[in-house]
Design a protein around this nucleic acid. Structure first.
Lengths: 335, 335
DNA sequence: CTGAAAGCGCTTACAG
DNA sequence: CTGAAAGCGCTTACAG
């Protein structure tokens, strides 16, 4: 059916070896011959078969990327960063949505290994013990994004979540808030949630502020999740003056629910987010947040993985990206 | 380095053919032998090499998916739908962000063909002549999402954009609006923009309403794009009472800019969106929009492509999905 | 029920 | 500078 290297060789009156050489720009081909081959390729409309090439070369030029859900703004940005770099370096990515389910993660990992991916990017909230072991054992080059594993010290690119949460809490406190609730990710495997929790507590304790149980809500990371957590919080008699939400979507849901209750944000209650999603500066009120360079996290992950594959030395194997507090309309000094 | 089928064969004292048979569940293998092979696989930790298999079978079980930008909410949802179905049927997807640039599209198409993708999903706003020809000539099974090509009648899954825009315009008119602006996609290749434009005009003309040039804005499809278009509109003396934006992000940007001007939405101006993104019911005001089943469009595209590859008959090659007007807070009767 | 062998479409060490 | 041949890791028609 389709034309193969053999057909081109026949057309150009050379051997397949020669055709292969011009295809791969091996220098020692006679200019005349090369021209003839190029013409034959043109005439026949030949396209190399990358699968055959991969089998021979033991290299597929494709990465697997495992994320919880592409429909979640955070991962969407990271993936875009990954893909742009991959495109520059002639890699492609196989996208795997795991929903943070271990079963799916295991299955995808097997597929990625079987499809001989040159490397794997794992972007997530945390990795289960089992998967971690399996990944490391597989010997496939691996980089994690958004999280870091201390057990195997897998190369990683992330933000200092503990510090980021600490900074945001301190910021809220600097506004005069002493009663602060925390809406966090309820997923059992979330390393990030634990780190943020620690930062939050450290800041509160430093100031000698109370941490009542009813102000530590856990739920789904989504607008609806934020809505529900605010709903639960409002049922309490003891109301905080500020809420630190684990991301901007959660903050948005919380703002919506507060508004329905007749509470004006930030006049009656301050609400902060995390990540600085693109909507956050546009919604009303715009959301005070901790910006983190999601696109760059993806891009740096990809670059690091490519370096590893090329056996280049990677000086810093655990890159911490910068975060920034962005003050906007959803927070204000306590009245 | 890694264990191959030959190693398993040796371990189990059978031929590679036999190992391959148990791997592929070919029935005519002795139970006893099968068990021995399975044990050998277990012991050696053998993982099949899908690349070798693909070369032999002429099937990679991977699709290429070309979209403008995964960071755009519309495509994010569609891709999730695609991936979920692919996962069910043991396909993987190679994600390609083209930014609607023809150069990137051409390059990606070549790569997808060379990597022997079993099929390609093209989700976009429109296809250039050249790319269309190249895709069709390549003979790779192809489905388009969000758009339909009338020239080659490529199988497609989409919403009736003309009718959807018509319906939304009619809805705004039913609210008493006679002065309606339209914020649309400025990309030169956007088929969708042209269809919506037609629907908008048809509705307006049916009612004998004017279509002044200054109310037909074109810009970038994004929150910022909507902000800018509203900014331009507000510079006109002649102000409409309603704006139909080409999607919810554009609407959000427009709402923001209107607010900055001291205009209250919907009291002073009604603004409608398109697509029903997940934020749209949560922002304040929530956005009146035309819902379209983005996830399902992706899912149906994937299913159709799989059917085509399996040579199953696809009765309806141009599937029109349902759209719905969702009335929310950003539109109101004209005062 | 099982094995030897050919072949999928490439690349490259080796020989000339 | 060029070609014949081996080999990447599988599957399967063929023969037994």
């Amino acid at each position: 059916m389709s034309v193969k290297i053999k057909d081109v060789a026949k057309e150009a009156n050379v051997s397949v070896a020669t055709v292969s050489r011009v295809l791969n720009n091996v220098p020692l081909v006679n200019e005349e011959t090369k021209k003839r081959v190029l013409e034959a390729i043109e005439r026949t409309g030949y396209k190399p078969n990358a699968i055959a090439r991969s089998l021979k070369m033991q290299k597929t030029n494709t990465f697997g990327i495992m994320i919880p859900d592409i429909a979640s703004s955070y991962f969407t940005e990271v993936v875009r960063g990954v893909e742009d770099i991959c495109n520059m370096y002639d890699y492609n990515i196989i996208l795997c949505n795991t929903d943070s389910e271990e079963q799916k993660e295991q299955t995808y990992l097997d597929v990625l290994i079987e499809k001989q991916c040159d490397g794997i990017l794992y972007i997530g909230r945390g990795i289960s013990q089992e998967l971690k072991k399996k990944m490391v054992d597989s010997k496939v080059p691996l980089v994690t994004g958004a999280i870091h594993d201390y057990e195997y010290s897998i190369p990683s690119v992330m933000v200092d979540n503990e510090k980021a949460a600490y900074d945001m809490t301190k910021y809220l406190i600097s506004l005069g808030h002493k009663k602060i609730a925390h809406f966090s990710d309820g997923h059992h495997n979330s390393l990030i949630a634990r780190e943020k929790e620690e930062g939050f507590r450290r800041a509160m304790q430093e100031e000698g502020l109370a941490l009542p149980k009813e102000w530590e809500l856990m739920g789904e990371i989504s607008i609806r999740g934020g809505y529900k957590m605010m709903d639960a919080l409002l049922k309490e008699n003891n109301r905080p003056t500020a809420v630190m939400a684990t991301n901007d979507e959660v903050a948005l849901g919380a703002i919506r629910r507060a508004g329905e209750e007749g509470l004006s944000v930030p006049k009656d209650i301050s609400i902060s987010g995390f990540n600085n999603f693109n909507i956050s500066e546009w919604v009303q009120p715009s959301i005070t947040t901790v910006a983190q360079p999601m696109y760059d996290i993806g891009a740096v992950c990809a670059r690091m993985l490519i370096k590893m594959i090329n056996k280049e030395e990677v000086e810093n194997q655990n890159i911490i990206m910068r975060h920034d507090i962005i003050e906007r309309e959803s927070t204000a000094t306590v009245k």
